[in-house]
């Protein structure tokens, strides 16, 4: 474990907590893409299948359990409890356009052609693009609530910090996973446009409005 990865995990945790707080306090899922949350749930389910078979550390297990349960809870809140506030008309990104390419790529490009390894690879590829429905929805509505933009900033920062973690592990632990690194770079690059808007607008106290 290194500081980059620890802070990255805490950013990821903060993002998920921020999202749950937004939903619970505003009693609304307005502006949230249920599709992205479904994809994140799928990412955790396919990545943490080794939750009970491969013990790494108490920290690792606790975080996996929290990420799994919170992502499933978020999907539940969006599609059942606060369904009335779900803006389905703007959450129209076709998930199959992400699921099928990621599945095919995971079958072709992986470290080992075994079910667990292919599912892990699928989860890595899917995580890289899982935010697209959410970013697409914001581009359609033209704006995002401030707390939603904090959520996105924390979520985008987490994988950016993981890139630093991979650099660190490459130089100091001679540990390198090209699949995770390439997907992590793609994932972080997808947030760049949002990062620019967040820093130039939200941090100036303005609401996140996309140029019409």
């Amino acid at each position: 474990m290194n500081a980059f990865r620890l802070v990255g995990d805490l950013c990821h945790l903060a993002a998920i907590v921020l999202l749950l707080l937004k939903i619970w306090k505003s009693r609304s899922v307005a502006g949230l893409s249920g599709k992205s949350q479904i994809l994140f749930g799928l990412v955790f389910v396919t990545r943490y299948l080794d939750l009970v078979t491969n013990f790494v550390s108490p920290y690792n297990t606790i975080m996996k359990v929290f990420f799994l349960s919170s992502s499933i809870a978020t999907v539940y809140l969006i599609y059942t409890k606060f369904k009335a506030t779900y803006d389905g008309n703007h959450d129209t990104f076709r998930m199959e356009f992400l699921l099928i390419p990621c599945a095919l790529l995971a079958i072709v490009v992986n470290h080992e052609f075994s079910p667990m390894e292919i599912l892990w690879t699928f989860s890595i590829y899917l995580e890289a693009v899982a935010i697209l429905p959410q970013l697409f929805m914001i581009s359609k509505t033209g704006e995002a609530e401030t707390i939603t933009s904090h959520y996105l900033f924390a979520l985008g920062s987490y994988r950016g910090l993981y890139i630093m973690n991979w650099l660190y592990r490459y130089y100091y632990e001679n540990n390198f996973d090209v699949i995770a690194v390439v997907a992590g770079i793609v994932q972080t690059v997808l947030y760049c446009d949002f990062f620019y808007l967040y820093i130039t607008k939200v941090l100036q106290g303005k609401k996140l409005q996309l140029p019409a």
Binding site: R5, N54, V56, S57, M63, F67, H111, E117, A180
Partner: peptide, 10 residues
Amino acid sequence: KENTARKDEL
């Protein structure tokens, strides 16, 4: 092979 064995990240 070490990549598949060492899955210690979240």
